[in-house]
Design a protein around this nucleic acid. Structure first.
Length: 434
DNA sequence: TCTGGGGTCCTAGGACCC
DNA sequence: TCTGGGGTCCTAGGACCC
């Protein structure tokens, strides 16, 4: 089974903001260089889709609600859904907050005939909608991950689809080759040059031809997938292989001292997550995106594994120092990999002689945020109660006072520094205001 | 006013080792 | 008196996914 929540982020917003139900909602980066994360189906009718530049989305659908996202709410809804999936089978592989594979055959003795499977899926969808306060999901059933995923795609939105065993090849033959997982824009370009547009076209090529064109791994993979031969297992627990933090700036930054401080700040976030996972890292990587959107990375592998901020931060700064950033930097990232569960600190050797600057935990803000009140944020006003930020600017914040449990509510405007207005504390996770 | 952030996997060349 | 051969590790870049 493959399950995919419909327009997930936007659907959570519409659930919690009744005035947005039935209206175009776009969740994503709301800054100058943001992209769309999720568009509601109402917004998709205007041609707005995932990964589209936000300015383009605004051009196509100026009257949509543009929200920056409330990940605590998405995580909470996701946890409920994943819990329901675990009731079906111990083998659940989440692909993201809104998607997962379930190996139903591992779920114990259960009749796996078509009728029973459709019943399981229908029951799951009903319970999911009830448990999440109205979210919907599309469910695909099939004899492999590939077929289940194809089925859920065909089921969207808010549906169920089952690909009968024996009908796999016929089901996929007419689909574009792009429907095969692993075939992206670059691979599709190369396939087009070979005259391939559909999976049926792909079936005409030999494995040897595909390997010659695309390399051994993806060539062989594609040849198998073209005939629906997919034996990849559902893997419930996949170990973390890397941790990274990166940020695209509102405006390119050329100041080396500023970039160095941002690298420190990113290193601190990386180390925080590394420690939370009880892991240690051997390799530190810095990534830079230039104004022309090309990017480079520089990495260094240490003799031992570390979780110390001073070490990660200094290596990151040294790697950054090796790049000429005078033309400006669009994005700066810091990451770690080569993760292990035990420290090997004594082996560590920082041979650089530059004095290690002490990293202060609370640096002054380095990049101005577009607003202290991002659109969509949950807030509480002492006299008016719970609501969400409708918009802000020019020293004012406009709030709509409504929740999932109320009907559409009224709008009021306050001064941005109104002491009675505060960011709401998410129920299950620590608050990170501002 | 082009083009996020967090990941995984693959390839290819060079260093290094036996 | 050409320039072995195989394996692993590291680095860098790129494709892809959600």
């Amino acid at each position: 089974m493959h399950l995919d929540l419909d327009a997930f982020f936007a659907a959570v917003e519409q659930r919690d903001k009744p005035s947005l139900r039935g209206k175009p909602v776009i969740v994503g980066g709301i800054g100058l260089r943001g992209v769309v994360s999720t568009a509601s189906y109402e917004a998709r009718r205007f041609g707005v889709g995932s990964a589209m530049a936000m300015h383009e989305a605004r051009r196509r659908c100026p009257n949509a609600a543009f929200l920056s996202g409330r990940f605590h709410a998405y995580r909470a809804a996701s946890a409920i859904v994943m819990g329901l999936l675990h009731e079906l089978s111990p083998l659940v592989e989440p692909l993201s907050l809104d998607e997962a594979f379930v190996d139903l055959a591992a779920g114990g003795p259960r009749p796996l005939d078509t009728g029973a499977l459709l019943g399981v899926a229908a029951d799951l969808r009903a319970r999911l909608t009830a448990a999440t306060g109205g979210l919907t999901a599309s469910v695909g059933l099939g004899s492999s991950k590939f077929m289940a995923k194809v089925a859920s795609e065909l089921a969207k939105p808010d549906g169920i689809r089952l690909v009968e065993p024996g009908t796999e090849v016929a089901t996929i033959a007419g689909l574009p080759a792009r429907a095969i997982p692993g075939v992206g824009p670059a691979t599709m370009d190369r396939l087009s040059r070979l005259g391939v547009s559909t999976i049926a076209d792909l079936q005409q090529l030999s494995a040897a031809e595909l390997v010659r064109e695309l390399g051994k791994s993806s060539g062989e993979h594609l040849h198998r997938m073209a005939f629906a031969a997919d034996d990849r297992p559902v893997e419930p627990e996949r170990e973390t292989k890397s941790i990274s933090v990166e940020d695209t700036f509102e405006h390119d930054i050329a100041d080396a001292a500023v970039l160095s401080r941002i690298a420190d700040r990113h290193a601190a976030q990386v180390v925080e997550r590394l420690s939370a996972a009880a892991l240690f890292a051997r390799t530190v990587t810095v990534k830079v995106r230039w104004p022309d959107f090309s990017s480079v990375s520089r990495s260094r592998t240490l003799d031992g594994a570390t979780d110390r901020l001073e070490v990660v931060a200094q290596v990151a700064r040294n790697l950054l120092d090796g790049l000429d950033t005078s033309q400006g930097v669009r994005l700066l990232g810091v990451g770690v990999s080569g993760l292990v569960e035990v420290a090997q600190e004594p082996l560590f050797d920082l041979e650089t002689s530059s004095p290690g600057r002490v990293v202060e935990e609370a640096e002054a803000p380095l990049t101005r945020r577009p607003s202290g009140w991002p659109a969509g944020t949950d807030v509480v006003h002492e006299r008016h109660g719970a609501g969400w930020v409708w918009g802000s600017g020019l020293g004012r914040v406009t709030v709509r006072f409504e929740t999932a449990a109320t009907g559409p509510g009224p709008v009021r405007t306050f001064a941005s520094d109104d002491p009675e207005l505060t960011v709401a504390v998410p129920a299950a996770s620590p608050a990170v205001p501002g």
